[in-house]
């Protein structure tokens, strides 16, 4: 049985990758298990300057999911390159996925340039889909022309594979996907969270200080799967599928829809052993569904 997959020349032992923003820089999880079992690891989204993020409350609950409005809290690109990535290197021996975000093309390019110099960065994942920041983030991800411009700006600065992380908060995700591919993207990550809200019945006001937040967890899995299926048909570059992946069966389903690898997000927050358990359970699911090589089933649902 073979669980390995390849993303733009980067060979992963298995397709399971903790998603950005749900795994910090790995330290909390390294106390619980050996991170080297992971296919790769996507670090917390990094911006050019340090960000505190949004006021509290940043978290709300939904049926089979959670809303977050963290707002890209991170120590900034310099601290990530000088401290977080070297620390992570001691905990995790494989190449990581560096998630970057920005509020202008220049900021995206500066982050990508800094990440290009980092030895343990295997892929640069460009977040153009954060629903929780204003004047940046998602605004680049909802317009095909803006998405293409970010892609070009980042591609000019780095030789590493560039994956664009797409927003589900659009009418036609295929159009955005094609625009990124046309601008030179090496792959696509999808989906980011779905814009959502909860209202507190006692206060009669939104629960989140930011009013709205991004919904993730099993509640969004069928939406994510549908979009991975659509994007797989629209482009030739590889897709990393994410959105509510919580079991080995979900991994198989995402691969059938067209994902080459998957990211596990919210599940890590509910069960800190989620990624480890999914990886350990993959051989059982493969036997059950008669799969010898995981890479053989990529896109088989089409």
């Amino acid at each position: 049985m073979n669980t390995s997959v390849t993303l733009s020349g980067l060979k992963l032992d298995n397709p399971v990758i903790p998603a950005s923003g749900c795994f910090g820089y790995g330290a909390e999880f390294a106390e619980l298990y050996d991170l080297d079992i992971l296919g790769s690891l996507a670090i917390k989204g990094t911006t050019l300057f340090p960000r505190f993020g949004n006021p509290l409350p940043r978290i709300a609950e939904g049926p089979e999911g959670l809303l977050n409005a963290v707002g890209l809290q991170n120590p900034g690109i310099d601290a990530v390159c000088e401290t977080a990535l070297p620390c992570l290197k001691k905990l995790y021996g494989k190449p990581v996925i560096a998630n970057i975000s920005g509020f202008s093309l220049e900021e995206y390019a500066a982050c990508a340039r800094a990440m290009d110099a980092q030895e343990n960065v295997g892929i640069i994942e460009v977040n153009i889909s954060c629903p929780n920041v204003h004047g940046g983030g998602m605004s680049f991800g909802t317009d095909p022309r803006a998405a293409a411009e970010v892609t070009e700006a980042v591609k000019r600065t780095t030789a590493k594979p560039v994956y664009i992380k797409l927003s589900p908060n659009v009418t036609d995700i295929s159009e955005i996907a094609r625009a990124c591919e046309g601008a030179g993207a090496d792959g696509l990550s999808l989906i980011n969270t779905l814009l959502a809200m909860r209202i507190d019945l006692n206060t009669r006001k939104p629960v989140l200080a930011n009013l709205m937040g991004g919904l993730s967890g099993p509640a969004v899995f069928p939406v994510a799967l549908r979009m991975v299926y659509q994007v797989y048909e629209a482009v030739k570059i590889p897709v990393i599928g994410m959105g509510g992946v919580s079991s080995a069966e979900d991994v198989v389903e995402m691969l059938l829809a067209g994902a080459t690898a998957v990211q596990v997000g919210a599940a890590n927050l509910k069960n800190p052993f989620a990624a480890k358990e999914i990886i350990a359970d993959l051989p059982r699911a493969m036997r059950k569904y008669g799969i010898e090589n995981l890479r053989d089933i990529i896109g088989e649902a089409h």
């Binding site: 910090g24 909390e28 505190f52 509290l56 940043r58 963290v70 629960v207 927050l269 509910k270």
Partner: peptide
């Protein structure tokens, strides 16, 4: 007290400001 996502420091859902930088209330 805070509304928490994970409760162990991974999600940054409960960060507050202190005189010595940002701290996660849960961790």
């Amino acid at each position: 007290e805070a509304r928490m996502g994970c409760g162990f420091g991974a999600c940054m859902g409960c960060t507050c400001r202190t005189k010595y930088g940002h701290k996660r209330i849960c961790r």
